[in-house]
Design a binder for these strands. Structure first.
Lengths: 106, 106
DNA sequence: TCGCCATTTGGCGTAATAGTCAAGCGAGGT
DNA sequence: ACCTCGCTTGACTATTACGCCAAATGGCGA
């Protein structure tokens, strides 16, 4: 009952926490356009390999991304496409558009 | 160009980071049903007054909540209703529903 | 088998966050 | 003027997150 509600919030919070970092959002945005291997993402983010790899691990364990090893490279793709429309909604809200206009979610 | 992109991700990340805490998600969920004063939220979350107040401040500075002082009490309300539908989308995804079925966002 | 390539992981220093206690502060009532 | 109520804020400690370097892993070709 109340414990399961907290449990639910914990699971949801894990996703938000994973997304709560600029570099990780950059990665997600990039993957919205299709899967990429780690090397491409390293160029994009501009951090070291280990840092990017850690960011990817965070997103993966939160369930935001899925990975697949093909040959030498590991490819990541977006497992939660709705993140993209949610960020679009946030951008619209920041620009001051009223709620009725930005029917981005639900 | 690239700097503004990072800037944009930073602003978005601030919202996600604010939402990345179980107690704060509980608060948001409660406020989805309408505005509440702090005392009600303290009962709901089960933490101390100062803790709840800090959580509310985090959500407010991120733009997730708005507050209004009326008489002795401060009332908080949800400024980003799309958070609710996004969490619904996350729940659906966790239950394993395919993307096509859960048309929750966008 | 050896070495290279793409990626992950351990360890570490530093920075940010969470939570608590106690003090502060504004609005109203007496 | 004083007190109380509802809430916020300062100061502090403990925990957690970041980012890097260096070392390890695992797949593949020579």
């Amino acid at each position: 009952m109340s414990t399961s509600k907290i449990q639910l919030c914990r699971q949801r919070a894990a996703v938000f926490k994973a997304l709560g970092h600029p570099a990780r959002l950059q990665i997600v945005e990039q993957l919205a356009g299709g899967e990429r291997c780690v090397c491409e993402l390293v160029d994009l983010v501009g951090s070291s390999w280990s840092t990017v790899s850690r960011h990817l691990a965070v997103l993966k364990t939160a369930g935001v991304l899925e990975d697949e090893k093909r040959g030498l490279q590991v490819y990541y793709r977006l497992a939660l496409p709705c993140v993209t429309s949610f960020t679009a909604c946030l951008d619209a809200a920041r620009k001051g558009e009223p709620v009725e206009v930005r029917r981005c979610c639900g």
